[in-house]
Amino acid sequence: MITGLIVVDGAFKSKIFLEHTPWLQDQIKIMRTLCSEIIVVTQEPKPFYQVLDVGVRLITDCLPGKGPLSCLFAGFSLAQFHDVWVVNGEHPFLNVSAVEQLLDRKRSGYDAAIPMVNDVLYPLHGVYDRRCAAKALPLLNKGVTKVEALLQEIRWSSLSDVRLDANAIVS
């Protein structure tokens, strides 16, 4: 069982994201093929009430203004399942087979598996263990907001040249 976590960081991004509600619905539809639980984490949840069905958990970023790391902390802290598929809310197209590969890699002894496409890491498209919340909180307390800092505190592996979405072209 796996939790799907859609990260919508910041009030401005929430507003822009909601203007593209079909993206959100597409993400949820795709994530439901693999995830038993879907969570949307955002700084301003109220506008999302009108577009999310009752099967999606909506949680508030508990440390607003602390960036995506705060959203991950909130999501990991409240995730029902150990495996958490993280998705950036700005990325409307997802590839379940890539996530299955990442999940297999994570389960082979890592705290997270992160996709790498053309030598670029995409930590907001990885699969994490919810226990990473315990590593994120001390960083947030120090004022750290970047997800990349979390990677320095956990055991992770990259998976090279996975297709993040159906339209991705990977050499």
Score class of each variant (00 low, 15 high):
residue 3 T to E: 10
residue 4 G to Y: 00
residue 6 I to T: 02
residue 12 F to V: 14
residue 15 K to A: 09
residue 19 E to R: 12
residue 22 P to R: 08
residue 22 P to S: 07
residue 23 W to P: 02
residue 24 L to P: 08
residue 26 D to K: 11
residue 26 D to N: 14
residue 29 K to S: 14
residue 33 T to K: 15
residue 34 L to M: 14
residue 35 C to V: 02
residue 36 S to H: 12
residue 36 S to C: 05
residue 39 I to C: 01
residue 41 V to F: 00
residue 41 V to T: 10
residue 42 T to M: 04
residue 43 Q to W: 05
residue 43 Q to A: 14
residue 44 E to P: 00
residue 44 E to W: 13
residue 48 F to G: 01
residue 54 V to S: 13
residue 63 L to I: 14
residue 65 G to W: 05
residue 67 G to Q: 09
residue 68 P to M: 11
residue 72 L to T: 01
residue 72 L to D: 00
residue 72 L to W: 04
residue 73 F to H: 13
residue 75 G to Y: 04
residue 76 F to Y: 11
residue 78 L to R: 10
residue 79 A to L: 07
residue 82 H to F: 05
residue 82 H to L: 12
residue 85 W to Q: 03
residue 90 E to N: 13
residue 90 E to G: 15
residue 92 P to L: 01
residue 93 F to M: 08
residue 95 N to Q: 09
residue 97 S to W: 08
residue 99 V to S: 04
residue 100 E to A: 08
residue 105 R to C: 05
residue 108 S to A: 12
residue 115 P to G: 08
residue 116 M to R: 15
residue 118 N to L: 12
residue 120 V to E: 13
residue 126 G to L: 10
residue 126 G to E: 06
residue 127 V to I: 15
residue 128 Y to W: 09
residue 128 Y to E: 02
residue 128 Y to Q: 02
residue 129 D to A: 15
residue 130 R to Y: 07
residue 137 L to E: 02
residue 145 T to C: 12
residue 146 K to C: 07
residue 148 E to K: 12
residue 149 A to M: 09
residue 149 A to F: 08
residue 150 L to I: 10
residue 152 Q to P: 00
residue 154 I to P: 02
residue 154 I to Q: 02
residue 157 S to R: 08
residue 157 S to C: 11
residue 161 D to R: 09
residue 163 R to Y: 11
residue 164 L to Q: 11
residue 166 A to F: 12
residue 166 A to P: 00
residue 166 A to R: 12
residue 167 N to A: 14
residue 170 V to P: 02
residue 170 V to R: 05
residue 171 S to C: 11
